[in-house]
């Protein structure tokens, strides 16, 4: 079996937050309580997009202890392959959908004396749940949140109203920027830093913290990877004895699933390692996009993460 356990839910509320972001609320169809979860967890939402099954991960942003409903926020990506467009354009209140049990690849380190959150754009969502979790136990936290503009600052008002002392907002269009070196320098011993946002921001925070001598274990990050479109390619699946085509707008994992191959997965975002697949042979170029394999493994040509990575070239043979 692939993926986490499933839950049948109903969409009970759709709230536009700003021009790009919309919030969705889910409750269980059978009326039962949803499982509790830990701040930082995501759920994988299944979408039936005109015959194509899309499974996209979204961070749970609601209070982890509120079992009556879950909320997620979806940022519209006009250039992506459609998962977010589907949520924005096709989902209406009352729809029944399937989501996965909560899965956490970005959990709080509960040993921390202080949690320092750095968010960029829609990367705010996991922190909303983590803040609710920490507030319950009087946890020590601080948030630095960069948004493009006031108009696009999702949940800025709620945060500054409820937590004026902990919340710090930076607007790109007003040339406000996090002074990271100073910020990191002023932290008490036992602080953990968490970053969620665009790739550039994650790399910047990780590098700055490492350069400043922060222990690796105290730096946590989560990037939302969605599979990117790319040139179609052909793959031979040695174990299943099949040759399949991966289309421009589908991932290698989705193509395998379409062909009835039971390929393992969990996050579908290049983070969990579950879909790791052994390469038997190839002639061409890998386009690795995951966070799971390290640089050496990427260079080795021996492994690929089919949920987000692609291939360009003549032949690719996988052990699947």
């Amino acid at each position: 079996m692939s993926g986490a356990e499933k839950i049948k839910v109903k969409v009970t509320e759709i709230t536009p937050i700003n021009e790009l972001v919309t919030r969705f609320r889910f409750t269980q169809i059978n009326g039962e309580l949803l499982p509790t979860f830990s701040g930082g967890a995501h759920t994988v939402v299944e979408m039936d997009d005109g015959g194509i099954t899309r499974l996209n991960p979204y961070s749970l942003m609601s209070d982890p202890y509120d079992q009556s409903s879950y909320t997620i926020s979806v940022r519209r990506d006009d250039e992506g392959r459609g998962g977010s467009l589907f949520m924005h354009n096709n989902v209406t209140v009352g729809d029944e959908m399937t989501i996965s049990y909560p899965v956490n690849l970005f959990s709080l380190d509960l040993r921390a004396d202080k949690h320092l959150f750095i968010a960029g754009g829609i990367g705010i969502t996991p922190f909303l749940a983590q803040i609710k979790q920490l507030e319950r136990f009087n946890g020590n936290w601080e948030l630095h949140y960069a948004c493009r503009s006031e108009a696009l600052g999702s949940y800025v008002n709620v945060l500054t109203d409820r937590h004026p002392n902990e919340t710090h907002i930076y607007y790109d269009d007003q040339s406000q920027a996090i002074n990271l070196v100073n910020l990191l320098d002023g932290q008490p011993l036992g602080t953990h830093v968490y970053v969620c946002g665009p790739k550039g921001m994650i790399n910047w925070v990780r590098k700055t913290a490492e350069d400043a001598g922060w222990p690796r274990d105290n730096i946590h990050y989560e990037e939302f990877l969605a599979p990117q479109p790319g040139k179609p390619f052909e793959v031979k699946l040695a174990t299943s004895n099949k040759v399949i085509q991966v289309g421009e707008h589908e991932s290698l994992l989705e193509a395998m699933e379409r062909e009835g191959v039971d390929a393992p997965y969990l996050c579908r975002g290049g983070a969990c390692g579950q879909c790791e697949t052994h390469v038997i042979g190839y002639d061409g170029q890998f386009i690795h996009r995951d966070h799971w394999l390290d640089d050496d493994e990427h260079a080795s040509g021996e492994k690929i993460m089919p949920c987000v990575s692609r291939f360009e070239g003549k032949t690719l043979v996988l052990d699947r």
């Binding site: 986490a4 356990e5 499982p35 979860f37 049990y101 909560p102 899965v103 969990l266 969990c272 390692g273 579950q274």
Partner: peptide, 11 residues
């Protein structure tokens, strides 16, 4: 260890 790290809620 890989298996254990991926054990999920409800499973």
């Amino acid at each position: 260890l890989k298996f254990l790290l991926n054990i999920q809620q409800g499973a």
